[in-house]
Structure formats: structure tokens, C-alpha cells
Design a protein around this nucleic acid. Structure first.
Lengths: 233, 233
DNA sequence: GGAACCTAAACTGTCGACAGTTTCCGCGGG
DNA sequence: CCCGCGGAAACTGTCGACAGTTTAGGTTCC
């Protein structure tokens, strides 16, 4: 998983305490080791990671930017609680961003991209857990978005893709139809990759829309999902 | 100008030094009082505003989020320099976001929205300077985006709309065809508002696309625009 | 005259501290 | 047994300081 989250973040990229903390906390949130709605304070994180509050503060700002934590009116931080409306909202934004990206990508499809997609597909074919499938699914779309070469499109994707990971994680806990999910996703990715390789941008866009639409019924069926009641520290 | 930039920003909304600094610096950048490419350091801002570096640091992070400053590899900050490719990139993102927003807005058009749009249009009709026209133009689109009620769409708009302001400002300095710009914009906004009031979402979307396309030739003609050479402090 | 160099100034990343608020929790009153 | 109250604990926003690194300028050496 070298692609996701590695490229330029805000401040000076590498050895920065804030980055390390962002990565660590993001992982905990996405894995739901930190529960949605739970409180998360600067002193708490500072101690947990053995640093001062300054880098923690910066990390929280970044996590807010990614939609993983929210600040209340008095500045306190909590892990975001995604409601069914959020899922829909997130999905709708994807529906506007990704088809556009796919169109661009199709026009600049090259062997480097092809092999990256194939590597992802291959990995997913061998994926054991649902978590792994989700990760690779998001990575597939990340590869596409980054390949679009549209800076602001990419930046926008970076601002939401962690939420997608969180959502998938949440969903799997609800109904884990494991194997089927992988095969459906895999087939869709293969189809999309093939069409993009073909070079027909309009057709590729249509396929992207279709692939995204696969989620419609899942999201609709999720209308009854209750936001888990917030656990605190 | 109560709408733009006022609603929830990251951390606790009101009395926060970082916010004040963000607002002040953003204005300076958009007005090009701070020149594109020029260096901007934390101690410098801290002294200018009579605060410590902590809130300044936070402010710079927010400005980076809005695309008004950029950090280099060693963490130094500069005012962003928008290239013609950036203009195009920005424009393309708008082309994917706004039509979607307009479609949503049309379906939830109400008198409150109508009056806000009319107020904006009225203000523009009486606008004297190009700067004022630009401001109101962006505000018009901000009203629309916010009215879409799509959280992530709105967040994305907030991440780019200051860049739009900066771009317009840059452009006006190049070719100032003052009066014509206002009348064209005004006419387009009136048309769009009328169609949205009519309630035909698809037609409204089409009109939004058309309105945005008005900029195509301008952007194309800007291909030769040279990025001004960076002045330092 | 120009290039490499060396030193001084400037800047970022991080830390610990403090004041003002908000939240928590147990205690007393109803 | 529930509610409101008060003090203690916890937290955020901000500040000043320091170390390590980068930049800038002047200088020396070809």
C-alpha cells in the first residue's frame, strides 16, 4: 500500500511528527479501533504518541480536512459519525468526480497505468479478508483519480477517500457478504480497466457511472442503519 | 458580504486569532497586495498581526487548504502562483461540481433562495468596479453551492472559491473590459435564476454548463499569460 | 570578474507553560 | 430517587523558547 496517503501532504512531507500521527490515527479510525462519536483530545493523543500538543494539533486539523474528525463549537474533537445521509452525500460527490476523472484517464492511458491497475486487480483476486478487499477497492479508485492528472480533482479525492474507507469498514460490520463483494468488485474493475484501455472516453465514463451505481441499492438499504451511539474515552 | 467565508470554518468558529489572520491574509492575497510567488513566513505574519506563531501556523494551514499558499519541500510558504494550467484545472473542477449543484438547487428552490439571488443580482447591477463585480459573481455561485445542501460539495467549493477570486483579480489586471463583463455576467445570472425558479432541473443544469462555458474562450486566450515573476518580501 | 565558501540571520518543527473555559462528578436539597 | 450546585479535573487557545536546518550575503580565492 505505497500509494495511498503517501504523496505530498500539507507541510514538508516526510519526517514530521504531525504526519506520523495523522497516519496512525487515521488507521485507527478507519479500522474502527477509535469508535465513531468518541472523544479525542489533544493531551490524550500527545501522551499516547509521546509528543507535545503542537504536532497533535496539526494532525487533528488534517484529519478534519479528511472528514475523519469533527470539531464542535467549543473546539473539542470527536471521531466523525457518518449517517446514512453522509453516505449518500459522499456517494453523490463520487458520482460527480469519478466519471470525469475516468474520462481524463482514458485519454492518457499508458502501460504504466495499466500495470498499476493490473497489480491492484491481481492483489484483489488473492485477497482474503473483506478489509483487504475494501482497501484495494479504494486504492483502485485512487490510482484512477491520481492518473487523471487534475490537481484539484485529486485534492478533492484525497479529502474524501478516507471517509470511503471508513464507510466500507462500517458497512462490512453490518452485513458481511464477504466473497460475493470481492467478485463483484473485481469484475467491475476488470471491465472498467479493459474499456479504458480501449480508449473510448465516453464509454469509459458510462462504465464508471455504472460501476458506481452498483452501490445505489446498498446505500438505499442502509437508510435504516442507526448511527452507533457514541462511546467516550 | 456576510455569506462568503463566514460559516463554519475548521476550529471553533468565532473569536479565534487564526481565523482573523486567515481572513486578513486571504483578502490581501486575493487583492494581490501580497504578490503571487512572494515568500510569507510565520515570524513575519506573527509580528504583522501582533500574535505568536501558533495561530499563524494554523492560519497558513487553512490558507493552504484554500489553495492560496503552497508549502515547499522544506516547509517554507509562498503565495500561490496560478498558471494557465491551474486556471484550466480550476475551471474543469467547476464544470463537474456546479452543474450538479444547480440540479440539486433547482429541486429545492424556495423564496428565501430566490430573494438572496435577487439581492445579489441587484447589487451587481449597481456595481461600479470590476473587483466588485467579481466578488458578487463568486458570491452568486457560493449562494448556489451552499443552497445545494450537499455537505461535501459545499466543502469542496470552499476549498476552491478563493482561488477563483484570485484568478478573476489576476485576469482583470490583464485585460480590463470592465462594463461588458458585468453585463454579460448579470444576464447569465438572471437567466440561470429564472430557469431554476422554473423548476426544470435538467434545463437548469444545461444552463449552468452554458454559463460556465462562457469562460472557455477567456481561458483559452489566457494560454499566453505569463506567471508574474515572484517578488519577495 | 566570477565561483566556491563561510558565517550570520532567518525560519521551521517541537516543546512546556499558563490562563480562561467547559466538562465531570459527587454532594446536598427537595 | 431526581435535580441542581460547586469544586476539581480536563481541555483548548495562545505564548515564548530552543535546536537544527536552510537561506542570504559578504568574502576570499582563482
Amino acid at each position: 500500500m505505497p500509494l495511498l496517503h503517501s504523496p505530498e501532504r500539507a507541510r514538508s512531507r516526510k519526517k514530521n511528527l504531525a504526519h506520523r500521527i495523522v497516519d496512525a490515527v487515521r488507521r485507527e479510525i478507519v479500522r474502527q479501533e477509535l469508535l465513531p462519536g468518541s472523544k479525542i483530545s489533544e493531551p490524550m493523543l500527545a501522551e499516547a504518541y509521546g509528543v507535545s500538543r503542537a504536532p497533535v494539533r496539526e494532525a487533528l486539523l488534517q484529519l478534519e480536512r479528511e472528514g475523519l474528525v469533527v470539531f464542535d463549537a467549543v473546539g473539542r474533537t470527536r471521531i466523525v459519525e457518518m449517517t446514512p445521509e453522509d453516505f449518500e452525500d459522499l456517494f453523490e460527490l463520487r458520482m460527480t468526480l469519478e466519471p470525469a476523472a475516468v474520462e481524463h484517464v482514458t485519454n492518457r492511458f499508458d502501460t504504466s497505468l495499466r500495470s498499476r491497475l493490473e497489480a491492484n486487480i491481481h492483489a484483489m483476486a488473492g485477497a482474503a479478508s473483506l478489509a483487504e478487499v475494501s482497501w484495494l477497492d479504494v486504492e483502485f479508485h485512487t490510482i484512477l483519480m491520481e492518473a487523471s492528472n487534475r490537481r484539484r480533482l485529486i485534492a478533492t479525492w484525497r479529502a474524501i477517500h478516507s471517509q470511503l474507507l471508513l464507510w466500507l469498514s462500517t458497512m462490512h460490520q453490518a452485513h458481511a457478504e464477504s466473497a460475493k463483494v470481492r467478485d463483484i468488485t473485481l469484475a467491475a474493475h476488470r471491465r472498467l480497466a479493459r474499456i479504458m484501455a480501449g480508449g473510448d472516453a465516453k464509454q469509459a465514463r458510462a462504465e464508471a457511472v455504472k460501476h458506481l451505481s452498483d452501490w445505489r441499492p446498498v446505500i438505499a438499504g442502509m437508510a435504516g442503519a442507526r448511527p452507533r451511539k457514541g462511546a467516550s474515552r
